[in-house]
């Protein structure tokens, strides 16, 4: 009997020990990423000519359908403000304040591959992950389609295949994961005819961005978008005016997941708070029961 019990204890301790790291891994892994060494892209909206070559290259690389308009040379799409969706991981939009017939500048929109992604923190099954290269990628097999990532994303980037009854996917920029693993640039960067997109290590891109602003302070609005926003993003932007004109929202420096994660980890600190509540309620239950018994006994005696 005693032996069995010891065995049971041993097994259960082993199980518990093997489970605890599984929970904490995701956070520690994220901390190990050196964001300066991770990949990024610098988008210089003052250089972009709105040719939509990047859109075309992206759709070909990712086997996405041809646009409804039929071709990527059509400039009439600029009349409506577009968002990335299930048929396009990236779209180019003219700045909001510029009007026809001539747009003054354009910005390419896609997943920002945040340093501290809200979607990764939100995902219930860890289908979204941030790897050390900086890529936020999505695992079709794990996903159960709750769409909490769409709720969490501050840039409103992930799109969902609502029309699919089976195996709907979360669609967003993959940062051409396979290409950059093979030391190639992302398809969009390679396709850009004017070098509005610069691919490289994030740390160096930030330096490059600042030196561009310094050497041309009249041309640039003095801010590198994505350097500090919500803890930094892999894709960073330069522009001649405020970034809100390119649908890039004004965001504080605080990482989005930090509040929910601190609430979450506060409640579950080594499982102490739930266990304490359990113990407390158990104690209450026990003492109340004793009290009732005593009352009943007193009643009988009197």
């Amino acid at each position: 009997m005693n032996k069995d019990r010891r065995k049971f204890l041993k097994v259960s301790t082993a199980i518990t020990a093997s489970l605890i790291p599984a929970v904490s891994v995701s956070s520690s892994e994220e901390c190990e990423i050196d964001f300066n060494d991770a990949y990024g892209v610098l988008v210089d909206t003052t250089v972009c000519i709105g040719c939509r070559n990047c859109e075309k290259a992206c759709n070909i690389e990712n086997n996405l359908p041809e646009q409804p308009q039929g071709n990527f040379e059509d400039k009439s799409v600029f009349e409506t403000n577009r968002r990335p969706d299930v048929s396009a991981y990236t779209v180019v939009n003219p700045s909001i304040d510029s009007k026809l017939p001539k747009y003054d500048s354009y910005a390419k929109i896609q997943c920002m591959h945040c340093n501290h992604p809200a979607c990764v923190s939100a995902c219930i099954v860890g289908a979204l992950t941030k790897c050390r290269h900086g890529v936020v990628s999505w695992d079709a097999w794990k996903c159960m389609g709750c769409r909490y990532c769409l709720v969490a994303c501050p840039f409103q980037i992930p799109a969902y295949e609502y029309e699919e009854a089976l195996e709907p996917r979360v669609m967003k920029c993959t940062f051409c994961y396979d290409r950059i693993h093979n030391d190639k640039k992302p398809a969009c960067v390679e396709s850009c005819p004017v070098e509005a997109l610069t691919f490289g290590k994030r740390g160096e891109l930030i330096k490059l961005a600042h030196s561009k602003i310094e050497s041309n302070p009249n041309k640039y609005y003095d801010h590198v978008y994505g350097e500090d926003e919500i803890g930094g993003t892999s894709w960073i932007y330069l522009a001649s005016k405020e970034f809100i004109n390119y649908d890039l929202p004004k965001l504080a420096e605080e990482k989005i997941p930090s509040l929910t994660e601190s609430i979450q980890h506060g409640i579950f600190k080594s499982f102490l708070p739930p266990l304490a509540l359990y113990g407390f309620l158990g104690l209450v239950m026990h003492s109340m029961r004793q009290e009732k018994k005593k009352e009943a006994l007193d009643d009988e005696q009197s």
């Binding site: 956070s27 099954v125 159960m144 909490y148 295949e161 997941p257 979450q264 579950f268």
Partner: peptide
């Protein structure tokens, strides 16, 4: 009904998919 891939609803029970940072995981 709301889950896109409702047939994967058991996934949060696999320790390999546990995601301690996710509030939704805890709720689930």
């Amino acid at each position: 009904a709301d889950l896109g891939k409702y047939y994967n609803v058991w996934h949060p029970m696999l320790p390999s998919m546990w995601q301690g940072n996710s509030v939704l995981f805890e709720v689930g």
